[in-house]
């Protein structure tokens, strides 16, 4: 009938969305398995294995993500983006963790099993760990070298929501590192998260999910501060 053209267009859209959904479900499984890998940070003193394993898994995720995005026609990124938005956010969150632990020093030599001494150094302590950038996330997914034109795309908001999630995860991690007897990392985590939070305070948000995530950050920071306080007494 008169709606034939419309019906055909919708049929194509429907099929594409279906394919994207299937691909997204596969990606989702891989992302969850990456998070399981990273959850080892909560109960293993030495984190090098967990982080190296996560790096490995990122490659698989990267190629799955690429396959997903290459299904999307030119210029329609934002039309279908809602389908894999959660995946993107969780990927950024994991990349933040990986990058943090790759750039903070390993817990080996400077591990302070002497509580008093570490306390003394506390006020001058800095943290060398780097906050992953949006481009770095894409590099981590695409492969080793910085691609001139990344095949993958990440929305700015996805990146920022992922950072919020990552900071939350680091706050949880701090308490569990104390339980493992690791008193040095929580200090570094607190320093790092406070820095990132200070960065977030520079941003203007409208009334959306990003603002809610930012508001939730405050509690994570407070939790970190109270852990730091406990360590001092």
């Amino acid at each position: 009938s008169g709606f034939a053209a419309v019906a055909t267009a919708l049929e194509h859209e429907g099929q594409l969305r279906e394919r994207l959904r299937l691909q997204r479900d596969e990606l989702d499984v891989a992302v969850r398995s990456l998070e399981t890998q990273l959850s080892r940070l909560h109960y293993e003193v030495d984190w090098s294995d967990a982080v190296a394993g996560a790096r490995q898994q990122l490659r698989t995720i990267g190629s799955g993500f690429l396959e997903l995005q290459s299904l999307v026609p030119e210029g329609m990124f934002y039309k279908y983006n809602d389908l894999w938005r959660q995946c993107s956010i969780h990927i950024v969150q994991s990349c933040l963790l990986i990058r943090f632990f790759e750039t903070v020093h390993a817990p080996g030599p400077q591990f302070s099993d002497n509580l008093d001494q570490s306390q003394a150094n506390d006020s001058v302590e800095t943290c060398t760990a780097a906050l992953v950038t949006k481009d770095e996330v894409l590099e981590m997914l695409d492969g080793e070298k910085a691609p001139t034109q990344p095949a993958l795309r990440l929305d700015l908001e996805e990146y920022l929501l992922g950072l919020c999630g990552g900071i939350q995860e680091l706050a949880r991690l701090a308490a569990n590192r104390v339980v493992l007897g690791d008193y040095a990392t929580p200090r570094k985590l607190a320093f790092f998260c406070n820095q990132v939070y200070a960065g977030f305070r520079l941003l203007n948000f409208r009334n959306d999910s990003l603002r809610r995530s930012y508001d939730a950050l405050k509690y994570a920071i407070q939790r970190l501060d109270s852990i730091l306080y406990d360590l001092r007494i």
């Binding site: 950038t133 920022l160 960065g199 941003l203 203007n204 948000f205 409208r206």
Partner: peptide, 19 residues
């Protein structure tokens, strides 16, 4: 901070365009 200044600028541009 440099990172967040750039991010802030990008976000603001979006906000204005949206408006």
């Amino acid at each position: 901070t440099k990172l967040f200044t750039a991010l802030g600028a990008a976000l603001d541009e979006r906000l204005e365009r949206r408006e």
